[in-house]
């Protein structure tokens, strides 16, 4: 085994994530009530704490694609956001190489703007130079396939179907080489043709020596793209191993 070549890219060391939720509702939306809370510094009764991830440890290596599975609310998306550095870890630590990028279906660009301007904006936001953006723009739109049924790239994004805008967002994020790419359910939204293409792209990203994490409820896309799988249940790791084995257990569990 070529152990010396296995370079860790993400290390989670007994990570706990507790986050606070602001609950809307009750009588706190008037200017007077807000002012009262600011001056008295009293604790907001609308904040609740959720212990979403309870002591998770794993090591991810270069060139791996790791699927995260688990029932709804098991902490998969929370864990991804913590790896991306978007949620603070309450205890333990998560270390990562470079800057992990989270790609989720709810990552909104500007809905009033046409698709091609969103592509430019997204690429610039990822740190590309205007020349690079110009060179890649057509490829990205081509890859997303939004122009398959007419010239949609010049229409505002609010006119897109949810599948189309998810495809465009995936295409933008996948245009750049990432050390660690985190994908949250993005592949599930496209149609079969796009799914194939995006799975191909995920494999390419891995080949470029990156690590890919994929959260999905679609067993098929996990089986097709990931050879390793982590099963989270109620914030804890239930199993971690080759996709086939873990999937078998997970299926047995969900049938119960």
């Amino acid at each position: 085994m070529a152990d010396s070549e296995r370079i860790p890219t993400v290390v989670a060391d007994d990570a706990h994530i507790i986050y606070k939720i602001h609950q809307a509702g009750s009588a706190s939306s008037s200017p007077l009530a807000s002012f009262k809370r600011l001056t008295t510094r009293s604790k907001n009764a609308n904040i609740r704490e959720v212990h979403a991830v309870k002591g998770v440890s794993f090591v991810a290596y270069k060139g791996e694609a790791i699927g995260l599975i688990g029932t709804n609310g098991s902490g998969k998306s929370t864990l991804l956001r913590a790896v991306a550095g978007l949620l603070p870890v309450s205890r333990g630590a998560i270390y990562a190489a470079g800057q992990p990028s989270l790609l989720g279906v709810n990552a909104a660009l500007m809905n009033e703007l046409p698709g091609d301007r969103n592509v430019e904006l997204g690429c610039l936001a990822m740190g590309m130079t205007p020349a690079e953006v110009k060179a890649r723009k057509d490829d990205i739109i081509e890859f997303s396939g939004i122009n398959d049924k007419g010239d949609f790239s010049s229409l505002p994004m609010r006119t897109y179907s949810s599948g189309m805008s998810a495809r465009l967002r995936f295409s933008i994020a996948a245009a750049k080489k990432h050390d660690v790419l985190l994908i949250d359910e993005a592949l599930a939204t496209g149609d079969a043709k796009f799914r194939k293409r995006s799975e191909q792209r995920v494999r390419e990203l891995r080949a470029e020596a990156g690590t890919v994490f994929l959260v999905s409820h679609s067993e098929q896309s996990i089986r097709d793209t990931c050879e390793r799988c982590i099963w989270l249940e109620a914030g804890e790791i239930r199993a971690d191993g080759p996709t086939g084995d873990v999937m078998k257990e997970y299926e047995a569990f969900s049938r119960r």
Binding site: T9, D13, Y95
Partner: peptide, 12 residues
């Protein structure tokens, strides 16, 4: 794990 992360230049 902490040591492993440090050796490979990973940062929190």
């Amino acid at each position: 794990l902490k040591e492993l992360a440090r050796r490979n230049g990973l940062s929190a």
